[in-house]
Nucleic acid binder design. Structure first.
Length: 563
RNA sequence: GUCGCAGUAGCCCAGUUGGAUAGAGCAACGGUCUUCUAAACCGUGGGUCGAGCGUUCGAAUCGCUCCUGCGACACCA
């Protein structure tokens, strides 16, 4: 039920058709305090048209308004404040949630159309940092939002598994490496070699020469080079998958950069054939002045391909394989300009899905205001942060709920949930200066806070020893309960908006507000009292539990029944 | 230098399409567990919404100028 529409129609009717309902609909707002009603219409916009002062208009309209759908309509200055029929709304909303359960808020906006998501994309032989966390959990949440909105997401982990750095890595491994070490802790040791390489090549320029040769061999299919590369890739992927498993994230494909090696020449040929490629300072570029952008560099002056060449091949592959309506890239905001160029080139090439290419940027992660860099050893390891968080969750459980079953599993769900939620609760674009203590908070506006509210709700439902209700009769309406009802009613709209804006933080904010409203209700209302209202209170609790769990699911966060 | 993003309480952030008295959390202080999990709840203090001008009946929100921070600006990804 669209209550805004109800108000808009009522107001439009009261103007005797002088104003259309759709004009009014857009201006209806939700008052900041519930004392001013559930929905309000400011009459300012009618002042010119009706040649009267807003206050006068409000007074006049309120006399003519049909109030059958509302409990009351009152005038406060220039505002028309509408109070909804609380029982009617409660019955409708709770009924809907309890019947639809975790499908409450689903819609068919996407019409089963496919959306590809370029996300996570760690580099082989390098550890996953907090930067990868961002791309991974934001992409994962967007995929879930897309599904809920009727799309078919394809999560593509565009691994950084090709490039000159593998020449360096092979060189370093052959010089200083040890097979057993790499087997024991692949990422750790491979990174050591890499860092050492960059340390020593400052003194010894022949190292770079050697690295270039090894990469050339790799490109030419030299068996030793290829075998090492494959091995690095495999052990790295195994290590990544352990982390992904912890995060509860999976992918539909892992088509890394190397996957497109064979397609690069075709990209260049096509660009040339279309007359898009031109020489500039020895390099081959696509002129983008018609898009008000700098030229896109496709081939270096030595003829080598660049990142964009690969990305064009990738976009074409996705276009032909999946026919996506949208092609999303969850990549840091520092690449915004680059993606404008990529999109412009693809448009010039006439790629169908180019119009649906969207860069979904997120803010840079820094530590003490400095950029992270594997090379300089300035890095926050994702695995370490997760481990710390889980450890803290274990300690909390030991202190607060020592008899809990599945302690280990719950600790992991809470610890990991805190990290994921902590990343998703703020707007994507906000830069984050990483602070471990800040990250490891379980109180206030955090993931565990929402999980805790859900666990409390589940605990009450369990102790009720009753079949779960599917509707209500006459819920005793307190301010706390009414706030919850309105919030539940809002969930489907929030799901739509979050998807439309590619903004998981809207779901996180919603979950926090609902959890807060529930905790308040829980503190003030005794739920398990055996009276004729018990069923209705349980219905409310059940609805809250369902929606909290669903909101957390959309963020990729678990909701344990006990914690 | 050019372009982009940002600036709201001591800290970290909300603030729908411009609307009524700018809100949470953390930190500080003070209350609430023999009763559904205190990872909670209730209360107190704390603001020239970076600065200025403009548009508007009305601006944290829109426009312009300036200040500050971060990022991107062809042979990295």
């Amino acid at each position: 039920m669209d209550y805004k529409q109800l108000v808009a129609t009522a107001v439009a009717d009261a103007t005797d058709g002088q104003v259309t309902a759709s004009d009014i609909y857009e201006k209806i707002e939700v008052p900041k305090t519930s004392q001013n009603g559930d929905l309000a219409f400011p009459t300012f916009i009618l002042a010119k048209q009706l040649h009267a002062a807003p206050q006068q208009i409000a007074k006049k309209l309120v006399e003519k308004i049909d109030t059958t759908n509302f409990s009351k309509v009152v005038v406060v200055g220039p505002y028309l404040n509408f109070f909804l029929d609380q029982q009617q709304v409660a019955q409708q909303v709770l009924g809907e949630v309890l019947v639809e359960k975790n499908h409450y808020g689903d819609n068919e906006d996407g019409h089963d159309q496919t959306v590809t998501i370029d996300m996570s994309s760690p580099n082989i032989a390098k550890p996953m940092s907090m930067g990868h966390l961002r791309s991974t959990v934001i992409g994962n949440s967007i995929a879930k939002l897309l599904s809920k909105n009727g799309y078919r997401p394809i999560k593509d982990n565009h691994l950084g598994d090709w490039g000159t750095q593998f020449g360096k890595l092979i060189t370093a491994y052959l010089k200083w490496g040890n097979e057993d070490d790499v087997k024991r802790d692949p990422i750790h040791y491979l990174v050591q070699y890499y860092i050492r390489f960059h340390h020593e090549d400052e003194q010894d320029p022949t190292l770079d020469e050697e690295a270039r040769e090894w990469f050339k061999k790799l490109e030419d299919g030299d068996p030793e080079a290829v075998q090492l590369w494959k091995w690095f890739r495999e052990v790295s992927l195994q290590a990544f998958n352990q982390t992904y498993q912890k995060l509860g994230v999976s992918f539909d494909t892992y088509n890394g950069e190397s996957f497109y090696n064979d397609a690069l020449q075709g990209v260049v040929d096509t660009l040339r054939k279309d007359g898009l490629l031109e020489k500039s300072q020895g390099a081959s570029v696509v002129d983008l002045s018609s898009d008000n952008l700098n030229p896109a560099l496709i081939l270096k002056s030595d003829g080598a391909s660049l990142y964009i060449t690969r990305d064009i091949a990738t976009a074409i592959y996705r276009d032909q394989t999946y026919h996506p309506v949208m092609n999303l890239y969850v990549v840091g905001s520092e690449q915004t300009y680059y993606f404008k160029q990529l999109k412009a080139v693809l448009k010039k090439m006439g790629l169908k899905s180019a119009a649906g290419l969207h860069h979904i940027p997120f803010g840079l992660i820094t530590v003490n205001g400095k950029k992270l860099s594997t090379r300089h050893g300035n890095i926050v390891l994702l695995n370490e942060v997760l481990a710390e968080s889980i450890k803290l969750a274990q300690a909390q459980i030991a202190a607060k709920n020592p008899d809990l079953k599945n302690k280990e599993q719950v600790a992991e769900e809470v610890g990991v949930g805190a990290v994921i939620f902590g990343d998703l609760k703020n707007e994507r674009i906000d830069p984050i200066d990483f602070n471990l203590q800040e990250q490891l908070k379980f109180e206030g506006e955090t993931g565990p806070y929402v999980q805790y509210a859900h666990a409390r709700a589940e605990s009450v439902l369990k102790k009720a020893h009753q079949p779960l209700p599917t509707k209500i009769t006459q819920l005793t309406m307190t301010d706390d309960a009414w706030t919850i009802i309105k919030m539940l009613q809002n969930f489907p709209a929030t799901v739509r908006r979050a998807n439309h804006e590619f903004e998981p933080s809207m779901i996180a904010k919603y979950a926090l507000r609902l959890a807060k409203a529930f905790n308040k209700y829980y503190a003030h209302t005794k739920i398990l009292t055996d009276d004729d209202q018990l069923n209705d209170r349980l219905a409310l609790v059940q609805a809250v539990s369902l929606v909290l769990k669903e909101a957390l699911r959309l963020l990729g966060v678990q909701a344990p029944d006990e914690m």
